[in-house]
Simulated scan of single mutants.
Amino acid sequence: MSTTPEDRIRQRAYELWEREGCPVDRSEAHWRQAAQEINDEDSQTSPVSAKSPIRSRPRRQASEDRRNGPKAHALKAAEAAARQYGLALSDILETLSQEKKKGRRTS
């Protein structure tokens, strides 16, 4: 099964995001860096390539990021924390919800 360039970029951006400690506000930078790295790798493996350069970020996904905003990043961060600490995502989300009801800031 062959992966598309977009899938490779998505995976690389995720790896960059995890490597930097899952920051909330760096998704665009990670995507651009991943696209550049994948594009560089592809050009090295096939020096005379007829492929068009990889777009910096799919328009649809970029608009979804703007629409989802901080909530999407918060969910990704919660998922990463769940994996890192071996917890169920539902437990983390429930704790965050309880803290919010109490008026506590969770950061």
Rank of each mutant, 00 (worst) to 15 (best):
L96V: 01
E64T: 01
Q33G: 09
S49H: 08
Y14G: 07
D40G: 03
G86I: 07
E28L: 13
A50T: 13
R8N: 08
G21E: 09
D7G: 00
P5F: 08
E28F: 10
W31L: 10
E41S: 11
C22S: 07
S90P: 00
K102R: 15
L16F: 15
Q84N: 11
R66K: 14
N39R: 10
R26V: 01
A34V: 09
S27K: 04
R104S: 10
P5Q: 11
S27G: 09
Q61F: 03
L89S: 00
R83N: 11
E41K: 12
E15H: 06
D25A: 13
V48S: 15
A72R: 07
G21Q: 09
Q61A: 08
T3Q: 03
S2H: 02
R55G: 13
G69S: 08
A82W: 02
I9P: 00
A72Q: 06
R19W: 05
M1D: 04
K76Q: 14
V24T: 10
K100I: 11
S27C: 09
L75Y: 00
D91R: 12
P70I: 06
D7N: 07
L89Y: 05
Q44G: 07
P47T: 12
P23K: 03
K101H: 05
Q98P: 00
Q44W: 08
L75D: 02
D40C: 07
A13V: 06
A34Q: 00
K102D: 10
R32I: 14
Q11C: 06
S56L: 12
E79S: 00
E94F: 03
E18C: 15
P5I: 01
A72L: 08
A35V: 09
A50V: 03
